[in-house]
């Protein structure tokens, strides 16, 4: 019993969501803007559940990779092969994304969440139930009628996460979700993310913070110059990074 529990990993002990589109296999992915190659023949495989942190220096192509996976950008070449051979629109419906600077609609917190649910086809009681659930999960119930425009940075990011979680995604993409937040707000966001991960959702998160990766991630994808230089478990990555650039990143040093 204990062995089974350890094998599944305590972070995935309450898997409540069936995985349909994972694992994903990325083969020879290239993304170019003009003559600049942002993603350069990238190969990677990501499994279901847990949290994958994508680390790397500025300009490594982390955010672009996230947008390619979410379908916001179209690859110049290469393949992103989702499990199940589903229609791309179905794959998109199984995902949601939280951006570094969330854009909220000019309406209340609750209306922002309802908008996303309505557009994703949630109706009636199911929609009402999802609104209540995520408001509670993200600690926003008390201020649910407050206009989004008057919220603090931390509250705005919580609304963005609530909106993203409301649609019950299998994968939640996060592009530096705590980059501009203070430590208290960061802890609040991380608590919500841990809960989402423990529910069995796959988190794929871009972050610049090794500490945050250590707190949240199961595995690390390290990127440099549009390529994956390393994909390993967090403990392994921190103990024995495989490249000098990853070593320098962990130590907080400049890499030339």
């Amino acid at each position: 019993m204990d062995g089974e529990h350890r094998a599944s990993g305590n972070l995935q002990s309450r898997v409540v969501h069936e995985s349909l589109i994972l694992p994903v296999r990325i083969e020879n992915l290239v993304y170019e803007i003009g003559k600049a190659r942002i993603i350069d023949s990238l190969n990677l495989e990501l499994s279901a559940g847990g949290c994958t942190a994508i680390l790397g220096y500025n300009g490594a192509g982390k955010s672009v990779l996230l947008r390619l996976l979410h379908g916001l950008l179209t690859p110049s070449s290469g393949i992103i092969r989702w499990a199940g051979d589903f229609d791309p629109e179905f794959v998109r419906q199984r995902q949601s994304m939280v951006f570094q600077s969330p854009v909220l609609l000019r309406r209340s917190i609750e209306a922002n969440i309802r908008y996303a649910l309505t557009k994703r086809g949630f109706k009636g009681e199911h929609r009402a139930h999802r609104i209540e659930t995520v408001l509670e999960q993200t600690n926003l119930s008390r201020i649910r009628h407050r206009q989004a425009m008057v919220l603090s940075g931390g509250e705005r990011q919580r609304v963005a996460i609530a909106r993203a979680l409301a649609v019950e995604p299998e994968i939640l993409f996060l592009d530096e979700p705590t980059a501009s937040l203070d430590p208290a707000a960061t802890i609040g966001i991380e608590d919500i993310l841990v809960r989402a991960r423990n529910e069995g959702r796959k988190l794929i998160m871009v972050t610049q913070s090794v500490g945050q990766a250590e707190r949240l991630a199961n595995d690390i994808v390290f990127m440099h110059h549009g390529q994956v230089t390393e994909h390993s478990l967090i403990e392994e990555f921190l103990a024995t990074p495989k490249s000098p650039v990853a070593q320098a990143f962990i130590e907080g040093k400049l890499y030339k």
Partner: peptide
Amino acid sequence: ADYDEELRSIGVRGAAKLITLIVE
């Protein structure tokens, strides 16, 4: 320019996107 990625991420396109932007 501000809303595009967020709306596409939610799955809002075409006329629905236009209406949302006008309302905003």
